[in-house]
């Protein structure tokens, strides 16, 4: 009896969680112009329409470029700083670590506004580059925190051994530390890519004509409900799920070995 109630409750919540996604996907195959019942598909015409829409494909490429480049910068900066604080006794480490992780506690909207005003003041126009900087601001603290948490004393001993054998600082960093920390580096890079890929409000504030996919989807929404938007959404969902599964597999495998 209790077990039946538990199963019913879980089924209800799974239903709640998947209802909108299911509608999104189902009506992306809608045959007519509106993505509401009755369903009269399946038809692939909306997928055809979006894949031949150059604005969407350009936005997609912009999103990928911004996500990968900003995440690379975020991981490298975060990794270097984490190494600096983990391996050296720098003055006031608590204070400096707090400074680096401070952006984690501020809403994207506020960080984005600050940068918009800042770039305005410097006379820099809205651009994907400005957006890339914003994404490094939000992701670098995260990469720093993840990587720092994975730096152990044992690794420090191995680094010391490498130094004793004549390796220079940069050789230790590139040939010893980075390979040892690969799971943390991968995890933080992956998370940064995910956040950048999905980030809307900063992209909305800091880019204009050349923009990213979330903003382009937002522009589509102004036209009201459309199976076109469903098709874009379903594709984005598919990509995200594949990324999540890849991450799960890689992270899981690492834990086993």
């Amino acid at each position: 009896m209790r077990k039946a109630a538990a199963i019913a409750y879980a089924a209800l919540l799974y239903g709640f969680i998947f209802l909108p996604v299911a509608m999104l996907i189902l009506f992306s195959f809608q045959g007519s112009q509106v993505p509401v019942p009755p369903f009269n598909g399946p038809s692939l015409k909306w997928y055809q329409a979006i894949l031949s829409d150059s604005r969407l494909t350009v936005a997609l490429l912009n999103s990928i470029a911004v996500a990968i480049l900003s995440s690379l910068v975020a991981v490298v900066l975060g990794f270097l700083a984490a190494w600096g604080f983990a391996r050296f006794s720098l003055k006031w480490p608590g204070f400096w670590k707090a400074v680096i992780t401070l952006p984690l506690t501020v809403s994207y909207l506020i960080i984005g506004m600050g940068l918009l005003i800042f770039f305005n003041g410097l006379g820099l126009p809205k651009s994907l580059f400005a957006l890339g900087i914003a994404h490094v601001v939000i992701n670098m603290p995260l990469c720093f925190a993840i990587i720092l948490s994975q730096m152990t004393a044992n690794q420090a001993n191995i680094e010391r051994a490498a130094r004793d054998l004549g390796a220079r600082d940069w050789q230790v960093l590139v040939l010893i530390t980075a390979p040892m920390l690969w799971p943390a580096l991968f995890a933080s890079f992956f998370l940064a890519v995910t956040f950048s890929w999905d980030e809307f409000i900063m992209a909305f504030l800091l880019t204009r004509f050349d923009t990213t996919l979330p903003v382009e989807i937002w522009n589509l929404l102004k036209g009201g409900l459309s199976p076109r938007t469903n098709a874009v959404g379903a594709l984005v969902f598919a990509v995200s799920v594949i990324l999540a599964i890849v991450f799960e597999l890689v992270a899981f495998r690492k834990r086993n070995t």
Partner: peptide
């Protein structure tokens, strides 16, 4: 070397987070 490694992250936070704020 430690400060050199931490400097880029600190400088970046200063210029693109603290100053704008």
């Amino acid at each position: 070397a430690g400060w050199l490694a931490a400097a880029p992250a600190l400088a970046f936070t200063l210029v693109f987070f603290i100053l704008p704020f």
